[in-house]
Structures are given as C-alpha cells and as structure tokens.
Amino acid sequence: MKTTLLSALSAAAIFIASLAQAEADLSALFRTERTSLDNLPEERVARFLSFGRKSRQSPENKVQFSKSFLDAQPSAKGGEQFSCLAEALYFEARGETVKGQFAVAEVIMNRVASKRFPNSLCAVINQGTGRKYQCQFTYTCDGHKEVIREPKAYERVAKVARLAMDGAVSKVTDGATYYHTTAVRPSWRRAFTQTARIGVHMFYRDDRYRTAASQ
C-alpha cells in the first residue's frame, strides 16, 4: 500500500511540475510575441488588424473621395509614423484632390511594403534627407523649414493618413511606388510603367519589383 501511495504521489508531483513548466514556457512565448509586435511598424500592425474588415467589405466602398467625407470623419490621431505620413501629405499633396491625397499616401505605403525601400513610414519619407535635393520627397531636403500654415488642410490630410494606415482604401494607383507632378518630366519615368494620372500627379510602378498591392 505504501509503495502504491508513494508512486501516486510521485506521479502527481511530476504532473504538477510539468504543468508549471508548460505555464512558464507559455508565458515566455507570449512575452516573445509581445516584444515582436511592439517592434513592428505601426502601419503594418494596422494593416494586419484591418485584414478581416477588408475581406468583408471592399475598402473602396467605405471611402468617398470628397472633402465633405473627410470633414465628417473623427479627428485623426496617432504616433510618430502617423505624424510622418500626415506631414508628408500636407507638404506633398494638400492642394490635390482627396483621391490624389489618398494616391500619394498609397505610394508611400507601397514603398514601406517593398523590400527596395525602408520598412517604416518615417524612414521612407526621410530617405536621403540631409543631401539638398537628393532626397525622395523634396520638402524634406529643399532647405526650407517645414511649417504648417494651413491647419484645416492639415486636419484633412491627417484623416487621409489615418484612413490609409488603417487600410481603408487600396489600389488607387495599381501598385505605384513613384510619382511626379504634371509640371515636370523626369527622365526616370521612362524606366517604369505608368499606372495612373490623378489630379496633378502621374503615378508609376517598377514592374521588376512588384508589391503586394500591385498583384
């Protein structure tokens, strides 16, 4: 009887130890996953979280390319990556149509998704900054201080930035990662496929490096 009892107690002790180890392993896994999520760029997390919503309803049906639609949206907020995108849209596209503003936002998002460019909005937008007129987005290296003088225009483009980061619209430019205004004719355009003309901007895709948005 004593031997049976000892065996049962030993088995119970082993089982309890196994449970404790399993709990410790699970906690370590959760900590690792949390650390990985914390290190992901904000816009990529937003895209992941919005995947289910996009599969149930076409993004294009949720967005109206009008100022009245933007004015009806709640005030936009976000962290550093959001601020970078909102600022870029203000200086690059505040005078564009609403659809044109979404298109410029999409180009920046497409660059983040491409392995040929940095993997965060701020890094994409500030690529080359510090070399006058050698950057990717001219306003960051033209030697002029970035001052937001039109708060209403900034409020609207900030909403565009928030919606774009949340995955509310996509494929406006058919996967473009480059654009220029109709006032110029840069030589690099010949190397790419023109995908759209929206407002005063022409959009291009490099077919050698297709992003998920252009598939």
Rank of each mutant, 00 (worst) to 15 (best):
L89F: 05
L40S: 12
Q73A: 15
R94S: 11
D38H: 09
K77N: 09
Y90D: 15
S75C: 10
L49P: 00
L89H: 06
A72T: 05
E42W: 02
F91L: 07
R47D: 00
L26W: 08
F82C: 08
S75E: 12
L49C: 02
S27L: 12
A76Q: 06
R56A: 11
P59E: 01
R44V: 10
A93I: 07
L89K: 03
V45P: 02
F69A: 04
E92T: 13
A103H: 00
D71T: 06
R44F: 01
R34P: 13
K54E: 12
R53H: 08
L70K: 09
R56Y: 08
S55G: 02
V45A: 03
A88I: 06
P41Y: 01
E92Y: 04
S50W: 03
S83G: 14
A103S: 07
R56V: 07
F65I: 05
L85I: 11
L26N: 10
S66P: 08
G52C: 05
Q64G: 09
V45W: 01
V63S: 02
L37N: 03
L70I: 04
F51L: 09
E33W: 07
K67T: 15
K77D: 06
Q64N: 14
A88C: 04
F48N: 01
Q64I: 14
E43W: 00
S66F: 14
E43K: 03
Q101D: 13
G78L: 14
G100Y: 11
F82R: 02
